[in-house]
C-alpha cells in the first residue's frame, strides 16, 4: 500500500483549491482525496463524457454547462436520456467545496457520492454504476487517464467518483464584480451599492455572503406544483418541519442560471422579486423571514437586480481549465 502511494506520488502533480480571503473553511475533506492535476483531468474528461449514461448520449455537462454557470438554462426541469424529463431544475455547480450536502433536498451527503444520483436515476442517465466501470475499463483512453491519475489502469467506482469530485470541487467562482469590490479592486455604481444595501436587509439572512447561500433548507413561499407534489427536504428527514423546504441555492452567477427555483417555475429575476414581494404562498413551514411582507418599490427592485448582476463571474464561465477537454 505504501509502495503504491510512493509510486503514485512520483508521477502525479499535486494541486490545491485556493480559499479566497475571508471565505469560510471548505467543508470537503481533501485529506481523503488529495487533488492532483491528473485526477482533475480524469474528472474533467468524465464530466464531459456521455459514456456514463446508459445509451452514451448524456454527460454531466448536458445539464451543467459552463457558459451558464454550470446549470441548464431554459428548461424548468432537467432532461435525461431518450427525452425523459426529471422532477427538478438542475442546480448550478459552483463552490461545491463549501457545501455540506447536495441536491435540492440535501439527500446526498458527500460530493463524491453525488454523481451516483444522475447516473442511476431512470429519468436522467438510467445507467448502473458497475456498467460505467466496465465501459471505462474497456476504453484505451480511460486506461491511460486512470493510469496517470492512480498509478494503474484499474477502474473502480471509488476512483471514478473521487476523480469526478476532483473536477467538481475545483469549480470555484470568486471573481465577480462583487468580489472585486470586496477586495477593493473595483467600486459599485450608486445603484449597485443601493442594491447591495437592500440585499443585505432583505435577502442575506438566507443567501449569506460570501457564498450567497446559508447551505440550509428553507420554505421560500413557492406554491407547490400540483403535479410534482414535491415536499423537498421532508423526503429525506421524514420530519414535518421540513415539508416544502429546499436547499437555499447560491446566487452566484444568478443572472445566467434561469429559470429559477427547484421546479424552474420562475422564468426571470424580475419575476423572482415579484414572488418575494407579492406572491408568497402561506404554509406552516414558511421561513420566518418571509412571514412579514417584503416591501420593495420598483426603483429598489431595479437596484437589487443591478446588484445581483454583479455576482456574474466572467472568468469562471470562461475558465479554459473547466472547458470541454481537447
Amino acid at each position: 500500500m505504501l509502495v503504491c502511494l510512493a509510486f503514485s506520488n512520483q508521477f502525479t502533480t499535486p494541486i490545491y483549491l485556493e480559499v479566497p480571503k475571508n471565505w469560510p473553511k471548505p467543508h470537503y475533506d481533501f485529506s481523503k482525496n488529495p487533488l492532483t492535476e491528473e485526477g482533475f483531468q480524469l474528472g474533467r474528461n468524465l464530466f464531459y463524457d456521455p459514456i456514463i449514461s446508459r445509451d452514451n448520449t448524456i454527460s454531466c455537462a448536458s445539464c451543467h454547462l459552463q457558459q451558464t454557470g454550470f446549470t441548464h438554462v431554459d428548461h424548468d426541469l432537467s432532461h435525461g436520456i431518450e427525452g425523459r424529463i426529471g422532477t427538478r431544475n438542475s442546480l448550478a455547480l459552483v463552490n461545491l467545496a463549501w457545501s455540506k450536502d447536495f441536491m435540492w433536498d440535501g439527500g446526498v451527503n458527500n460530493l463524491e457520492m453525488q454523481p451516483i444520483n444522475p447516473i442511476t436515476n431512470p429519468l436522467e442517465m438510467d445507467e448502473k454504476l458497475e456498467h460505467v466501470v466496465a465501459k471505462l475499463q474497456r476504453s484505451e483512453k480511460y486506461k491511460a487517464l486512470f493510469t496517470s491519475a492512480f498509478g494503474d489502469e484499474k477502474v473502480t467506482s471509488q476512483r471514478l467518483l473521487k476523480a469526478l469530485a476532483q473536477f467538481t470541487v475545483m469549480l470555484k467562482s470568486s471573481n465577480s464584480k462583487y468580489d472585486k469590490v470586496m477586495r477593493k479592486e473595483a467600486v459599485f455604481t450608486k445603484e449597485e451599492q443601493n442594491g447591495y444595501e437592500l440585499f443585505k436587509a432583505n435577502c442575506a439572512s438566507c443567501h449569506t455572503e460570501p457564498l450567497f447561500s446559508s447551505d440550509k433548507f428553507e420554505n421560500n413561499g413557492l406554491k407547490p406544483d400540483a403535479v410534482l407534489k414535491d415536499g423537498g427536504r421532508i423526503k429525506i428527514t421524514k420530519n414535518n418541519k421540513d415539508s416544502l423546504r429546499f436547499k437555499v441555492p447560491t446566487l452566484r452567477n444568478i443572472e445566467l442560471t434561469y429559470p429559477y427555483m427547484h421546479d424552474g417555475s420562475i422564468k426571470n429575476l424580475a419575476m423572482v422579486l415579484f414572488h418575494y414581494t407579492e406572491d408568497i404562498y402561506q404554509s406552516p413551514t414558511l421561513s420566518k423571514q418571509l412571514v412579514k411582507k417584503m416591501e420593495l418599490n420598483e426603483q429598489e427592485k431595479g437596484n437589487l437586480l443591478l446588484f445581483l448582476r454583479t455576482l456574474t463571474d466572467e472568468e469562471f464561465i470562461r475558465n479554459p481549465r473547466f472547458q470541454y477537454p481537447r
Binding site: V108, N110, E112, M113, I116, N117, L129
Partner: peptide, 24 residues
C-alpha cells in the same frame, strides 16, 4: 462511514447496497 464519500471493497457502491437519491 455512511458520510465518508466513495469507498471500496465490500463498501463499493457497485455492490448494490447503496442508495443514490438519499446517500447511505
Amino acid at each position: 462511514t455512511n458520510t465518508s464519500g466513495a469507498l471500496s471493497g465490500d463498501l463499493d457502491p457497485v455492490k448494490g447496497m447503496y442508495w443514490a437519491w438519499q446517500s447511505g
